[in-house]
């Protein structure tokens, strides 16, 4: 537990239809005793859930750029990395899976992942349509993420 006494969970959400489960994920996490939750969203993920149904702070790419005005200002993805005890990416879409497995960091969420302290748990929950799932690169990329020490919560 960190100095605040809470267990801080950062939820990453990406642009798969399963992102519509975000409000349920956040609600159920908040029911765990001593858990504090924040969300990092990609722009495409916003299409699938209603912001008003999510009871916690949601960060997006805009916040990263608005926070930083001059050299002494904090960098949001570093602040979030420091804040979180655990990162869970639910859902992880095919595009973001591809980016993370290659080290690409072109938005707030992928920057948090790239800067992640690997002594802390990172869980990922892949979700994509069956045709994309069956592409041979999916298994390669998931295996790469596991090599990085990330933990898969397999899809059904």
């Amino acid at each position: 537990l960190n100095s605040s006494g809470s267990f801080r969970v950062l939820v990453g959400v990406t642009g798969s239809v399963a992102a519509l489960k975000l409000p349920a994920v956040v609600d159920q996490l908040l029911q765990l005793p001593g858990v504090d939750v924040r969300v990092v969203t990609t722009e495409h993920a916003k299409h699938f859930y209603n912001h008003a149904e999510v009871a916690v702070k949601i960060y997006s790419d805009k916040d990263e750029w608005e926070l930083w005005k001059q050299r002494t200002d904090p960098v949001l993805h570093i602040e979030l990395r420091r804040w979180a005890d655990l990162l869970v990416i639910a859902p992880l879409d095919a595009n973001t899976l591809g980016k993370i497995s290659n080290g690409i960091c072109d938005n707030l969420l992928t920057c948090v992942v790239r800067a992640w302290d690997t002594s802390r748990p990172l869980l990922f929950c892949p979700a994509m349509n069956t045709a994309m799932w069956l592409h041979p690169i999916t298994a390669q990329q998931i295996s790469r993420l596991k090599e990085f020490g990330y933990m898969e919560v397999p899809c059904i």
Binding site: Q28, L86, V88, L123, I156
Partner: peptide, 21 residues
């Protein structure tokens, strides 16, 4: 390719919460 059940995700997070104590 449907995401894991929300309850499964929560229970994995919960395991890590207990480990951290």
């Amino acid at each position: 390719g449907a995401m894991a059940e929300v309850s499964t995700i929560i229970s994995v997070v919960e395991q890590h919460l207990h480990k951290s104590k």
